[in-house]
Simulated scan of single mutants.
Amino acid sequence: MLAGAIGDGVFKVVLGAAFAVGSTWLGEVFGVPTWLMVIAGAALLIGGGIEVVYVRRRPMATCLRLMIAYDIGWVVASAVALVVAWQGGTAGGEIGVGYLTAAPLALAALLVGAAATDVQPSATDVRPPAPDTSAA
């Protein structure tokens, strides 16, 4: 599972690099301005990089829940974008690329913020106290 979680972060980094490098061409394909593709690429690079680093520092259950929520959001945003595009709207690209701009940063913030909730309690001595033998 760890390899899959790291692979998810690496995929975001590669996708972010592709968005940043091909921003002019991809902007035309998605029907969005070049600057939005560059910002989406930067967000994916940052989010994916943080995911790769923090996936090893957080419980796998926390990482999986966050990645599942991210992927469900991606499916929903893509479906909405497709419906808008099929109906002749021009905002489909903005919806899809907008999600890919905001969601990786939110995922990264939640992974970093999970540090406060993932703190392990300190070990407590559960042995009963020794009897006091000094008062005889």
Rank of each mutant, 00 (worst) to 15 (best):
residue 13 V to D: 07
residue 44 L to E: 13
residue 106 A to I: 15
residue 125 D to I: 04
residue 135 A to H: 10
residue 79 A to V: 15
residue 90 T to D: 07
residue 77 A to S: 13
residue 2 L to C: 04
residue 128 P to L: 06
residue 81 A to W: 09
residue 90 T to R: 05
residue 19 F to V: 06
residue 78 S to W: 10
residue 66 L to F: 05
residue 41 G to W: 01
residue 132 D to P: 00
residue 97 V to N: 01
residue 39 I to G: 01
residue 102 A to R: 06
residue 13 V to N: 04
residue 46 I to S: 04
residue 66 L to R: 04
residue 115 A to Q: 04
residue 106 A to G: 09
residue 97 V to Q: 01
residue 92 G to I: 01
residue 72 I to Q: 02
residue 76 V to Q: 02
residue 125 D to T: 05
residue 102 A to I: 14
residue 34 T to G: 03
residue 99 Y to K: 11
residue 134 S to N: 02
residue 20 A to M: 10
residue 130 A to P: 03
residue 106 A to L: 14
residue 34 T to M: 01
residue 65 R to P: 10
residue 47 G to W: 00
residue 77 A to I: 02
residue 134 S to G: 00
residue 129 P to R: 11
residue 45 L to K: 07
residue 2 L to R: 15
residue 68 I to Q: 03
residue 87 Q to T: 15
residue 16 G to W: 03
residue 3 A to N: 11
residue 44 L to N: 13
residue 37 M to D: 06
residue 48 G to F: 01
residue 76 V to M: 01
residue 91 A to D: 08
residue 49 G to V: 10
residue 131 P to V: 00
residue 78 S to C: 12
residue 98 G to S: 08
residue 51 E to F: 03
residue 119 V to H: 10
residue 126 V to C: 01
residue 70 Y to A: 06
residue 114 A to I: 03
residue 25 W to A: 15
residue 77 A to E: 03
residue 111 L to E: 13
residue 14 V to Q: 05
residue 22 G to C: 06
residue 23 S to T: 11
residue 40 A to F: 06
residue 24 T to I: 05
residue 118 D to Q: 09
residue 31 G to V: 13
residue 24 T to H: 07
residue 3 A to Q: 09
residue 3 A to V: 12
residue 109 A to S: 11
residue 107 L to R: 14
residue 78 S to P: 11
residue 31 G to N: 09
residue 18 A to P: 13
residue 51 E to I: 07
residue 27 G to Q: 04
